[in-house]
Design a protein around this nucleic acid. Sequence first.
DNA 1: ATATCATTCAATTACTTAATTGAGTAAGGA
DNA 2: TCCTTACTCAATTAAGTAATTGAATGATAT
Lengths: 221, 221
Amino acid sequence: MSEIKKQLFEQLALITQSLASPQRIELLDYLAQAERSVDELSQLTSLSTANTSRHLQILKQNGLVLMRKQGKSRLYKIAGDDVIQLISCLRRTAENHLAEVTRLKQNILPSYIDKEAISSKELLSKMNTCAILLLDVRPLKEFEQGHIKGAVNISPESIEQKINDIPHDKTVVAYCRGPYCAYSYQMVEALRQRGLKALRLEEGFPEWKAAGLPFEINQVV
Amino acid sequence: MSEIKKQLFEQLALITQSLASPQRIELLDYLAQAERSVDELSQLTSLSTANTSRHLQILKQNGLVLMRKQGKSRLYKIAGDDVIQLISCLRRTAENHLAEVTRLKQNILPSYIDKEAISSKELLSKMNTCAILLLDVRPLKEFEQGHIKGAVNISPESIEQKINDIPHDKTVVAYCRGPYCAYSYQMVEALRQRGLKALRLEEGFPEWKAAGLPFEINQVV
DNA sequence: ATATCATTCAATTACTTAATTGAGTAAGGA
DNA sequence: TCCTTACTCAATTAAGTAATTGAATGATAT
């Protein structure tokens, strides 16, 4: 094989090597939601600061995340929508070919398994034809850095507190971080117990945004 | 973080770890074109048989390829279209974020750089509106295992020999293995030197098939 | 100046990788 | 039946890479 082709494969392997660590995948999973500092990420993942910093540098070196300095902190974010799509592809492949993933997904939330999830496409068409209340069930910080156009935020901790304010005349669609996130399941479960019509969006916000669908950002004050 | 989420990330890392070796990416690149035996792959990649076999087993263990026995040989093939899409995503990410890839791609065939490539979408619409001759520029074996519907095969070695038979009244579109493959560039170059109107399809056959676009298979006799 | 946040360094431990060897198996042909 | 071909397997090598920690250093804001 040509030398150049070999070198190209080596470059592709740089990307996969960056992704070949559960810790770094977890970091990317958090970064897919919002830009964050080393310290925040270190707390979210329970890795030491030094270790988190090193993992982030490997990701940065291979182009998967970007960094900017802000005051005392350094904020990291996903380098682009293509990276989110790559992780989505990865998830899909794992689900299709690794039996263990299927098993784990069934265990993640046995009581909330919901066959009635709708796709982004279905949501878009429903929004045109009937009254939908779109709920973003993620921490406020993530909502502020981007959410589906028209969505209303109810952070996971405040579900119980705010749930009674939700009007009964609309179909509720809830979404959260993505396929491995429990929040939208919990929300749908809670709404149904109260007799509301509730559906879960299959995709999370990162996939929605990466697909080029309409979203909006609330500037942090 | 929940234990299950950690385990899910570990499963994702199994896939990326399988892909985290230039040799295995190369093997997958060949397998994306056609089902092949260990021996064939060993010759294509210049790896020893035992080494090739071992790499293939790692890929198989993590669900990226499938194996079947046929007579004395064991034939390996890509496990599914999702794997081809994953590799496409990977390539895209590498091109977007690694400067070295851009540099290498410019070097791969400096004389054949062609801005006039068309996408699969454009090809499909062109096929409805004007007379197109679609050329598959890959070895016959790969063509036989699947090619774009309506395509005619001219194997890379026989370009010079068959090129004068190509009618001048049609627009020629040539495709080959994919973005890192030189054959379609060579074909377009040769056709243009003879004054024919020729375009290159951006995508290779694996991407076309993985996108669910129409293809056909010639059964090997 | 001092506190805060992050990076870097050095050292340790653990794992991965590629390649090789030699034995072993299984299918098919002579 | 035995030989050849095609591949696998298990064990081993050497080299390399990775993950992690704690301490030291560097940068920035108050």
